[in-house]
Nucleic acid binder design. Structure first.
Lengths: 241, 241
DNA sequence: CCAGTAAGGGTCATTACAACCCTAAGTCAG
DNA sequence: CTGACTTAGGGTTGTAATGACCCTTACTGG
């Protein structure tokens, strides 16, 4: 039998949802070190009524997958991500009680200030990514996988700037890496590895008023593909305004 | 508005399909070097009637995504992959004329002999991955991405054995790497890098009758996670018999 | 003006890797 | 039987990347 890609699913009871794991960094008040946090949404209907879940919702009929991820994320949390990438499609038959749901999950990064600005209400709360409660559906596994991808990708690509503003010091950039990778990095070695690559461009500005030696401000090299998705970057470029 | 993951898609016209890019190695008759090939299926209905497309089909109501990939692959090409991993979900609104289709695409590897055995008919043909005709839908982009992932993954993980049998010589393993990466590798350096890792276990068997010095046969170290998918390997383990 | 601290640069040992060379051990032609 | 040929497999060396550690520079607040 030869495939007919356009045929409908036999049983129309398969629903398609889009969810997003979105990370930001937060200073721990005790240690002063930054760690990875993410917002969760309290469910207000069965199944898993009252439990925490990833922000998301059904796919609209006229929107692309990434657009649906942005929209549902905005509707539920008010956040606008600085980086967004598809993570995985979860579709096990038994992953949700009741009608079957296939979830296409994205993962994203926001700047910390943007995360502060966004509304936080009764039904949206931030949690440390390493220490989550039991979530609805298979969302604990999803977060684990997203966190693993974030940590992996931080080592070989240049997504760290999505946590920072337009310009930043090398110390700020290093602190992002330290927060995600969970250990201290040598400032001098870090500087050399970054400056040795072409990821970053020095500006002629400096940060003063820090009661220390003024630090140079850097900007990301926009002529470089930060995402490192190979042929797919074509697809992503096309879609962004 | 808070998400309801289990709600149906507003417009029920979104169909969910599963396709697979499956690679095998073939000797080029002229040069004797191996290169990467994949089977394509000729479409026998609109849209793209008569053009080549990836093997696939609609998702069944009671099967997991990977199961659907294996099933549709078997039905259309007769192949049983030695390795299977999710690639990406393609869901742009305009990727298919007519009713909307979201395709969850897998990529896979088969042993070369298994690929030989599988039926090849009028409507299934093998093509070199580097030199494809214009395919149906966005399948050229999909194959490019799958090939990029294969080449990337070959460098840092241990999937090469999926092209080989139970036991193999280091020369065979090296030829797999050479075929995928497209360039010759130094035999001595390759040997050291493999033996230095714990990916491979030497058996006490040797290959004779090759009119050369007999080569040791190796076996893969099954106590190691070959796929390197982090937390997802949990999910995959569970599903395989 | 001095103490404290971050910015930023230098040095060195270790490691991974590529290039290149050599020897070992089979088969086949004669 | 023997030597040519070819692949198996090991050794040596230079280079590039990385981490550990030390030093100087430059600002601010007391």
């Amino acid at each position: 039998m030869v495939s007919g890609e356009a045929r409908k699913v036999d049983d129309a009871s398969v629903a398609l949802a889009v969810s997003t794991v979105i990370f930001a960094l937060r200073q721990d008040e005790a240690s002063g070190l930054a760690t990875v946090w993410l917002p969760l949404v309290r469910r207000i209907r069965e199944p898993f009524d009252g439990q925490w879940a990833l922000p998301g919702g059904p796919l609209g009929a006229a929107e692309d997958l990434a657009t649906a991820a942005r929209r549902t994320l905005g509707e539920t949390t008010g956040l606008t991500p600085g980086y967004l990438e598809q993570l995985y499609a979860f579709g096990d038959v038994d992953r949700s009680p009741g009608p079957r749901v296939v979830s296409i999950v994205y993962w994203a990064l926001v700047q910390s200030e943007e995360a502060q600005r966004a509304s936080v209400g009764e039904n949206v709360q931030w949690f440390p990514a390493d220490d989550l409660p039991a979530l609805a559906f298979d969302h604990n596994l999803i977060v684990d996988y997203a966190l693993w991808r974030l940590r992996n990708k931080m080592e070989y690509s240049r997504i760290a700037h999505a946590f920072l503003g337009e310009t930043f010091t090398l110390t700020q950039l290093r602190e992002v890496h330290e927060a995600v990778r969970g250990r201290a990095l040598d400032p001098a070695n870090f500087r050399r590895s970054i400056e040795g690559s072409d990821a970053v461009v020095a500006t002629d500005q400096r940060v003063t008023g820090t009661r220390h030696r003024p630090a140079r401000l850097f900007r990301y090299n926009t002529s470089i593909d930060l995402a490192d998705q190979g042929p797919l970057s074509r697809l992503n470029e096309r879609k962004e305004p």
